[in-house]
Amino acid sequence: MAALNIEKGTSRHSAYDLRDPNAETIETHTLAVLVDNEAGVLARVIGLFSGRGYNIDSLTVAEVDHEGHTSRITIVTTGTAAVIEQIKAQLGRIVPVHEVHDLTTEGPSVERELALFKVAGKGEKRVEAMRLADIFRANVVDSTLESFVFEITGTPGKIDAFADLMRPLGLREMARTGVAALSRGA
Protein backbone atom coordinates (compact mmCIF):
# COMPACT_ATOMS: atom_id res chain seq x y z
CA MET A 1 0.00 0.00 0.00
CA ALA A 2 0.98 3.59 -0.40
CA ALA A 3 2.46 5.01 2.74
CA LEU A 4 0.01 7.02 4.76
CA ASN A 5 2.81 9.35 5.64
CA ILE A 6 2.20 9.11 9.34
CA GLU A 7 4.94 7.85 11.54
CA LYS A 8 3.41 5.26 13.79
CA GLY A 9 3.55 5.72 17.52
CA THR A 10 4.33 9.39 17.38
CA SER A 11 2.16 12.32 18.20
CA ARG A 12 3.29 15.45 16.51
CA HIS A 13 1.16 18.22 17.96
CA SER A 14 -0.95 15.80 19.95
CA ALA A 15 -2.30 16.46 23.39
CA TYR A 16 -0.43 13.37 24.49
CA ASP A 17 3.10 12.36 24.98
CA LEU A 18 3.10 9.08 23.10
CA ARG A 19 6.08 6.97 23.92
CA ASP A 20 6.94 3.44 23.00
CA PRO A 21 3.81 1.51 23.93
CA ASN A 22 5.81 -1.64 24.49
CA ALA A 23 8.20 -0.14 26.96
CA GLU A 24 7.86 -2.16 30.10
CA THR A 25 10.20 0.06 32.05
CA ILE A 26 8.66 1.10 35.33
CA GLU A 27 8.98 4.82 35.89
CA THR A 28 8.46 6.90 39.01
CA HIS A 29 6.53 10.12 38.51
CA THR A 30 5.55 12.93 40.85
CA LEU A 31 2.12 14.35 40.06
CA ALA A 32 0.69 17.59 41.41
CA VAL A 33 -3.11 17.60 41.37
CA LEU A 34 -5.02 20.79 42.10
CA VAL A 35 -8.52 20.09 43.38
CA ASP A 36 -11.51 21.80 44.94
CA ASN A 37 -11.22 21.23 48.66
CA GLU A 38 -14.62 19.59 49.01
CA ALA A 39 -15.80 16.57 50.97
CA GLY A 40 -14.69 13.30 49.47
CA VAL A 41 -12.21 14.65 46.95
CA LEU A 42 -9.28 12.74 48.46
CA ALA A 43 -11.43 9.60 48.53
CA ARG A 44 -12.10 10.05 44.81
CA VAL A 45 -8.40 10.26 44.05
CA ILE A 46 -7.45 7.34 46.27
CA GLY A 47 -10.43 5.32 45.04
CA LEU A 48 -9.27 5.86 41.46
CA PHE A 49 -5.84 4.46 42.29
CA SER A 50 -7.16 1.43 44.18
CA GLY A 51 -10.05 0.79 41.79
CA ARG A 52 -7.84 0.78 38.71
CA GLY A 53 -4.88 -0.93 40.32
CA TYR A 54 -2.40 1.95 40.23
CA ASN A 55 0.38 2.40 42.79
CA ILE A 56 0.74 5.16 45.36
CA ASP A 57 4.27 5.49 46.74
CA SER A 58 3.57 8.71 48.58
CA LEU A 59 0.67 11.08 48.93
CA THR A 60 0.36 14.47 50.60
CA VAL A 61 -2.57 16.81 50.66
CA ALA A 62 -3.38 20.20 52.17
CA GLU A 63 -5.41 23.25 51.31
CA VAL A 64 -3.15 25.76 49.57
CA ASP A 65 -5.68 28.47 48.77
CA HIS A 66 -8.00 29.11 51.69
CA GLU A 67 -10.09 31.70 49.84
CA GLY A 68 -10.48 29.62 46.69
CA HIS A 69 -10.83 26.39 48.70
CA THR A 70 -8.32 24.59 46.54
CA SER A 71 -6.04 21.85 47.76
CA ARG A 72 -2.87 20.46 46.27
CA ILE A 73 -2.41 16.72 46.23
CA THR A 74 1.12 15.51 45.53
CA ILE A 75 1.28 11.88 44.46
CA VAL A 76 4.38 9.85 43.78
CA THR A 77 3.39 6.88 41.62
CA THR A 78 5.07 4.18 39.59
CA GLY A 79 4.09 2.45 36.38
CA THR A 80 4.90 2.02 32.71
CA ALA A 81 4.72 5.11 30.53
CA ALA A 82 1.29 4.01 29.31
CA VAL A 83 0.00 3.53 32.85
CA ILE A 84 1.32 6.93 33.96
CA GLU A 85 -0.37 8.53 30.97
CA GLN A 86 -3.63 6.78 31.83
CA ILE A 87 -3.36 7.84 35.49
CA LYS A 88 -3.08 11.47 34.44
CA ALA A 89 -6.05 11.20 32.07
CA GLN A 90 -8.16 9.47 34.71
CA LEU A 91 -7.25 12.10 37.32
CA GLY A 92 -8.18 14.83 34.86
CA ARG A 93 -11.62 13.26 34.47
CA ILE A 94 -12.56 13.71 38.14
CA VAL A 95 -14.97 16.63 38.24
CA PRO A 96 -13.39 18.60 41.16
CA VAL A 97 -9.88 18.21 39.69
CA HIS A 98 -8.72 21.47 38.10
CA GLU A 99 -5.20 20.65 36.94
CA VAL A 100 -2.89 17.67 36.76
CA HIS A 101 0.84 18.34 36.43
CA ASP A 102 3.47 15.70 35.85
CA LEU A 103 6.43 17.32 37.58
CA THR A 104 8.70 14.54 36.37
CA THR A 105 8.18 15.37 32.70
CA GLU A 106 7.26 19.05 32.79
CA GLY A 107 10.81 20.23 33.48
CA PRO A 108 13.02 20.50 36.53
CA SER A 109 11.36 20.42 39.92
CA VAL A 110 12.23 20.33 43.58
CA GLU A 111 10.96 17.67 45.93
CA ARG A 112 11.10 17.81 49.70
CA GLU A 113 9.85 15.62 52.49
CA LEU A 114 9.82 16.26 56.21
CA ALA A 115 10.47 13.48 58.72
CA LEU A 116 10.67 13.12 62.48
CA PHE A 117 13.00 10.51 63.99
CA LYS A 118 12.95 9.31 67.57
CA VAL A 119 16.38 7.95 68.50
CA ALA A 120 17.10 6.58 71.98
CA GLY A 121 20.55 5.77 73.26
CA LYS A 122 23.28 6.56 75.74
CA GLY A 123 26.95 7.34 75.65
CA GLU A 124 28.85 7.00 72.40
CA LYS A 125 25.76 6.13 70.33
CA ARG A 126 23.98 9.27 71.54
CA VAL A 127 26.95 11.43 70.62
CA GLU A 128 27.23 9.79 67.21
CA ALA A 129 23.53 10.30 66.51
CA MET A 130 23.88 13.98 67.38
CA ARG A 131 26.99 14.32 65.17
CA LEU A 132 25.26 12.68 62.16
CA ALA A 133 22.16 14.81 62.68
CA ASP A 134 24.42 17.82 62.44
CA ILE A 135 25.89 16.58 59.15
CA PHE A 136 22.37 16.05 57.75
CA ARG A 137 21.25 19.43 59.10
CA ALA A 138 18.54 17.82 61.20
CA ASN A 139 17.16 19.85 64.08
CA VAL A 140 16.56 18.57 67.56
CA VAL A 141 12.93 19.29 68.39
CA ASP A 142 12.69 17.24 71.59
CA SER A 143 15.32 15.92 73.94
CA THR A 144 15.57 13.85 77.10
CA LEU A 145 18.70 12.46 78.72
CA GLU A 146 18.16 9.24 76.81
CA SER A 147 16.51 10.31 73.56
CA PHE A 148 16.25 12.84 70.77
CA VAL A 149 13.52 13.69 68.28
CA PHE A 150 15.17 14.95 65.09
CA GLU A 151 13.41 16.95 62.43
CA ILE A 152 14.88 16.53 58.97
CA THR A 153 13.88 17.94 55.61
CA GLY A 154 15.13 16.77 52.25
CA THR A 155 14.59 14.53 49.32
CA PRO A 156 13.14 11.09 50.07
CA GLY A 157 16.61 9.67 49.32
CA LYS A 158 18.26 11.84 51.93
CA ILE A 159 15.69 10.80 54.52
CA ASP A 160 16.20 7.14 53.62
CA ALA A 161 19.95 7.62 54.06
CA PHE A 162 19.47 9.27 57.45
CA ALA A 163 17.16 6.45 58.53
CA ASP A 164 19.79 3.86 57.57
CA LEU A 165 22.34 5.63 59.74
CA MET A 166 20.02 6.04 62.72
CA ARG A 167 18.89 2.42 62.77
CA PRO A 168 22.03 1.02 64.54
CA LEU A 169 22.09 4.06 66.81
CA GLY A 170 18.73 3.39 68.45
CA LEU A 171 16.01 4.45 66.00
CA ARG A 172 12.69 3.88 67.79
CA GLU A 173 10.08 5.55 65.61
CA MET A 174 9.87 7.54 62.44
CA ALA A 175 7.12 9.73 60.91
CA ARG A 176 7.30 10.98 57.31
CA THR A 177 5.04 13.49 55.60
CA GLY A 178 5.41 12.23 52.07
CA VAL A 179 6.70 14.31 49.21
CA ALA A 180 5.77 17.93 48.48
CA ALA A 181 7.02 19.17 45.13
CA LEU A 182 7.10 22.27 42.95
CA SER A 183 8.46 23.00 39.50
CA ARG A 184 11.60 25.16 39.37
CA GLY A 185 11.56 28.67 37.97
CA ALA A 186 8.77 31.19 37.77
Partner: peptide, 10 residues
Protein backbone atom coordinates in the same frame (compact mmCIF):
# COMPACT_ATOMS: atom_id res chain seq x y z
CA UNK B 1 -12.93 11.60 27.03
CA UNK B 2 -9.12 11.93 27.03
CA UNK B 3 -8.83 8.81 29.21
CA UNK B 4 -10.35 6.67 26.43
CA UNK B 5 -7.48 7.52 24.13
CA UNK B 6 -4.50 5.15 24.38
CA UNK B 7 -6.21 3.20 27.16
CA UNK B 8 -5.98 -0.14 25.38
CA UNK B 9 -5.07 0.65 21.77
CA UNK B 10 -2.52 3.29 20.86
Amino acid sequence: DPSSINKTIR
